[in-house]
Design a protein around this nucleic acid. Sequence first.
DNA 1: CGACGGGACGC
DNA 2: CGACGGGACGC
Length: 446
Amino acid sequence: MEDYSSKQSVENLDNPPNSRLFLVTSRSVSDDVIREKFSVFGEVQGVWVVKDKQTKESKGISYVKFAKSSEACTAMEDMHGKCLLDGTKPIKVFIAQSRSSGRHRDVEDEELTRIFIKIPKTFTEEDLKDTFKEYGDIEYCVIIKNKTTGESKGLGYVRYHKPSQAAIAIENCDRAYRAVLAEPRSKNSSADNDYHSSGRAEHMSSDLGMNPYSFGVSDPGSYAVTDYRSSDLITRCLMVSSRASVTQEQIYGLFDLIPGMDYCEMQRDHCGLNKGHAVIRYNNLGSALYAKEKLNGFEYPPGNRLIVAHIEDGEDRTSPVGKMAMQLVAAQMMSMVWNGPTTSQQLMKMSTGYRTASPMPRVQTDVSLPSLKNLAPPDSRVKERLFVVFSPAPLPMDVLEDVFWTTTKCTQLRSGFRTSLNVLEWPSQSTELNANEHLWRDLKIA
DNA sequence: CGACGGGACGC
DNA sequence: CGACGGGACGC
């Protein structure tokens, strides 16, 4: 039957902003199916499947208009990668470009997760967090301050992990905050879009949290803990979702930085196409939990936020006892995770691999380094771990050795060259490193 | 009649 | 790879 509500008047297409979805589906998927699957997320005001003018056949492109941006975002986050019909390829879901914008580039999470707000001048960043955490997991809060006096300008940014959270904040927070989506930072920063420029580097830092201990049940300052939709499922298996296309090698390289991975596979459809989803399994709960806390929301490649969530691994963890065990695992993580059986083998694999890898120009630093220290025994229990993100390319391993191995009692160097990410491990807290701000900035240590 | 909107980040 | 239809109010 002709469905009146399939119509979308042009003036409503982008009202409110970001309330319309762009879908890529199998050509066999009808608007009825789309409506059925998407109306659970909110008020669907229109569904339109783009068809060939002559053949009337679907082109595999559809639009779904919701009443609210939060509904559209939630649907996008939930439905991206799902199959609408048995045997059809997984769909892709994006926020549609506004019809006037003329661009056909995907709208990235980067543009949908940060809000810009007006706040009382007396607000601290803690006040900001406390006020806005009710709408979702906050990744990052800043108050814009006068650089010389340090006084607040009464404006701030809040970065959430998910577009739906930012949308919910904008829709529901007090009007006095004037919450809107923040313009991406790069847009304002001159015409310098060089990959090597500092404008790009914003994406690299702070995604993993500066404090290696800032995760888990005992830390009230951590916002990376479970949210309302991923519930409290904790398993050894993770699902990684990426909007940008990533290779299995990249995902492997990234998640293998955390010891204990015993399985990593990209989900592919029958055509062998990359779905942007991967399943990772670790041999212990702690590694999986840690990997999720550290890598959920991590931008890889820069600008592309990975979503990492636990998925069923077939074991029952729903009982109260199971939950308590889970918390115990989280609390004891730092002392247990790092002694996985794979660590030494991988170190060997790495250290034989890098020297034959591409010869790079020598890197130099004028940072003054602390005095030489002894290496900790290789079998030391690891207490602290550092993620180092490089842009645009990773440093050779021997340079890292010079910088880190000699300045602290570092025990291990693990490297994900394909991911431009390295991990270093310490048997104790490396306070010297904290003090070395130049080093932190230069290397984008997360 | 009757109270809104602009503002923008850092190496 | 994957980006924009069809139809035409009612004073």
